[in-house]
Amino acid sequence: MVTTDEKGPLTAKKKSVIIRSCDGDEFLVSESAAVLSTSLKKILEEKEDRLIHLSDIDNKTLAMVIAYLSTHADDGLSDDLKRSFDQEFVSGKEFDVLKYLVLATDTLQVTCLCYTVAKKMADIMKNKLVEWVRREFDIQNDYTPEAEAEIRRLDAWAWDDRQLEDD
């Protein structure tokens, strides 16, 4: 057990942790990168265990997240470089890949990545028809016609003739 007075800032020393995906593969990550995730930081503060098992993040997603964390933990990179890395990181990714990133981000709580992925998703949906969103994201319309009419009535103030894109 770690006593209270020994709980110094974890980033101080250059230590590493091992993170295991749900597929069983293990990744070696510097502690300074790992603590960018609020969840991992908490785990590391609570126990001395250097092996963290993430039961709901697969190999491919975990590798991407770790690459992201390592880049952002690099003090040698300027904010501008990190911003352009973020842009690059989410560009051209399939919707499914982004979905797993959203989920992983939700589990790991990484502020910057959360922002980057959410912004990307918002940009994808920008000015799109409801039908386009349902089709591209494979979402079933679970409204009855009556329920849909009702929420349109509640949001009547927001309705007007808009030009929306369907491609």
Binding site: A122, K128, V130, V133, D155, R162
Partner: peptide, 22 residues
Amino acid sequence: ALANIFSKTSITDRSHSIPFVC
């Protein structure tokens, strides 16, 4: 996670489109 994504959309998308998806 969804709310976080929706907070980044324009007020138009937030009120006209997103609530009607599902």
